[in-house]
């Protein structure tokens, strides 16, 4: 057994294909733009003076918000497509194997690791189970929520008869009560994404330093580097 393991000297595994990496960084900038402009739409900057015809300042903020939203939507739809055609790591955040006991054991171990009770982290080629769960709940469903409520609000401006209005506004707005409620929940959704980003960035940096594999550089190069030769713990959790 011991020989077998030591014989397996893997230093790097290719994990993230280029479309996933490009998508990740496009999302970063889209979310950044959406968060900043979205906040400014809710709490506008101080008023401009002069003639209304001299400015299109608030209109530009909204334009950036809508443009970034379209980029995010197209990227997300593409990413869902890539989950079908890409490698097994491309499916991870969409389909956490919640039906497997070992997945939940992994989540628990990861909680112990973050609580600084577990002495050593496990080794993963993909995301660790807790990360998969957080990305699935906060990022995937958070983004779907923002896309649906966002299109419902956009459909209000496009007006009755537009596809955004027919497909989204017509049922989303009565579901929440009224337009103002959809605005409020869309705004709360932004804060959920903000919370996700804080955790995501902090944990990525921490894991890069303290775990047994590379994190940040992997999302740039696509290769997962390992700091030791023992086998990864998530081989049986991958969805082929």
């Amino acid at each position: 057994m011991v020989e077998e393991i030591t014989a397996r000297k893997e230093e790097a595994i290719f994990v993230y294909e280029w479309p996933v990496r490009v998508w990740h960084w496009v999302q970063v900038f889209a979310i950044l733009a959406l968060g900043i402009t979205g906040y400014l739409i809710g709490s506008p900057l101080p008023s401009l003076s002069g003639e209304a015809s001299d400015h299109f300042f608030f209109g530009t903020i909204r334009y950036i918000h809508f443009t970034a939203a379209w980029i995010l939507i197209v990227g997300f739809v593409f990413r869902v497509y890539w989950a079908f055609v890409g490698n097994s790591h491309a499916r991870e955040i969409f389909l956490p194997p919640v039906w497997r006991r070992r997945f939940w054991a992994g989540v628990w171990h990861e909680i112990l690791w973050y609580a600084m009770i577990a002495k050593e982290p496990k080794k993963y080629t993909g995301h660790n189970p807790l990360a998969v769960l957080a990305m699935h709940v906060l990022y995937v469903w958070g983004t779907i929520f923002m896309i649906v409520t966002g299109l419902a609000l956009y459909g209000e401006g496009e007006g009755m008869g537009s596809w955004q209005n027919e497909w989204f506004s017509s049922w989303v707005i009565p579901l929440f009560g009224q337009s103002q409620d959809v605005h409020t929940w869309h705004h709360i959704g932004m804060w959920v994404i903000v919370v996700f980003v804080i955790i995501h960035v902090y944990v990525a940096v921490r894991e890069d330093i303290m775990s047994r594999q590379s994190i940040i550089s992997s999302m740039i190069s696509g290769w997962r580097m390992f700091k030791d030769d023992r086998p990864p713990d998530d081989e049986d959790l991958r969805l082929e």
Binding site: H187, W191, R206
Partner: peptide, 23 residues
């Protein structure tokens, strides 16, 4: 929404900072 969101983000950022220090 901002009162809720800023509180939540503040708690999470604070927790991350404390966790980083402990790490």
């Amino acid at each position: 929404a901002d009162e809720i969101g800023k509180t939540a983000a503040g708690i999470v950022a604070g927790a991350a900072a404390i966790h980083a220090g402990a790490s």
